[in-house]
């Protein structure tokens, strides 16, 4: 039996799914005997933590600076152009100063050009870890999308949700001891609790996505039941998006293989059985008005749960 959970106020709605057939309500004992639980939750409206945002790049108009609400933000020199050239050496001292002085534990790091080359984000993460023990650090390249501001926004939001995501995971573990818990992704699929804890943003609209799926499968049931059911029928899924440079077919094949390997690794960390992980889709688009050999690569991997 798989437990679908719609995490709604005031009390979560539980649906037991056996052989695709939903049953509800579900008693606590029955819930704890579930093979796994899949949680549908929308993160909008949840409490967010103040975030320390570090952008690596050049100066910009005020309106284009990082937006962090109640947190703190800085722009430090560094980053790469999409052609792979270092715009400036990373200002490690500025990173250190900011990390030590911001007084925050949730960091979002966004470097110019990181979908192409993430070196500076990784370097910033190392400095921050050293300065702020226990810091939760989100690196924007994990979200991959080109467009510095959008990626930064994702990183900041992911960082802001980290604490609350951890709380949800902990609570689920308390309620359902021994039951592996998964969370519905925005779009399609589910991810493991640990993956959710690290990348809650991938589940930002997991409740809405589950509801949409559930309503197709079970028309006429209450929304919460549909959402719980929709979550229960998801499979682990993970995506990787990169900008790659490849001269010729052989090199492209190699960098694509790298991206696929990363997607396969991610879907396993998202809860898929290692043997079940497979590439669902690979999309490659050349980038216009840039040197030949620059491509946007999107890889989706999926798998099954134990």
């Amino acid at each position: 039996m798989i437990l679908g959970v719609a995490l709604v106020r005031p009390t979560p709605v539980l649906v037991a799914v056996g052989d695709g057939v939903p049953e509800w309500p579900v008693g606590r004992a029955a819930a704890r005997s579930a093979r796994r639980a899949c949680v549908a939750v929308d993160l909008s409206g949840l409490p967010t933590a103040p975030v320390a945002a570090i952008r690596v790049g050049g100066p910009c108009p005020e309106v284009l600076r990082p937006r962090v609400g109640s947190g703190a933000a800085t722009i430090v020199r560094g980053g790469h152009s999409l052609t792979g050239r270092a715009l400036a050496p990373l200002d490690t001292e500025a990173v250190r100063r900011f990390a030590a002085g911001c007084g925050l534990a949730d960091f979002a790091v966004t470097a110019t050009g990181s979908p192409m080359l993430a070196d500076h984000e990784l370097a910033v993460a190392a400095i921050v870890s050293a300065e702020v023990p226990g810091a939760r650090i989100t690196l924007s390249y994990e979200f991959g999308t080109p467009g510095l501001r959008e990626r930064e926004e994702s990183a900041i939001r992911n960082a802001a949700l980290g604490a609350e995501a951890g709380r949800i995971v902990d609570e689920a573990a308390r309620e359902l001891p021994g039951v592996p818990v998964y969370f519905a992704r925005t779009g399609s699929g589910v991810v493991s609790a640990s993956y959710f804890r690290r990348y809650p943003l991938t589940c930002d609209l997991g409740g809405a996505a589950s509801l949409a799926r559930g309503r197709v499968a079970l028309p006429g049931v209450p929304h919460e039941v549909a959402a719980a059911y929709g979550a229960a029928i998801g499979r682990p899924e993970a995506r990787v998006e990169r900008i790659v440079q490849a001269r010729g077919r052989a090199e492209l094949d190699r960098v694509l293989q790298d991206a696929r390997d990363e997607a396969l690794t991610r879907v396993v960390s998202a809860g898929a059985l290692p043997g079940s992980a497979r590439i669902a889709e690979t999309t490659v688009n050349p980038l216009s008005y840039l040197p030949d050999g620059l491509y946007r690569v999107r890889v989706t991997a999926e798998g099954t749960v134990p």
Partner: peptide, 14 residues
Amino acid sequence: VGSTTALGEQLPAG
């Protein structure tokens, strides 16, 4: 002139 993808990634100084 050039790539708008690049502009979106490497922001203008203004």
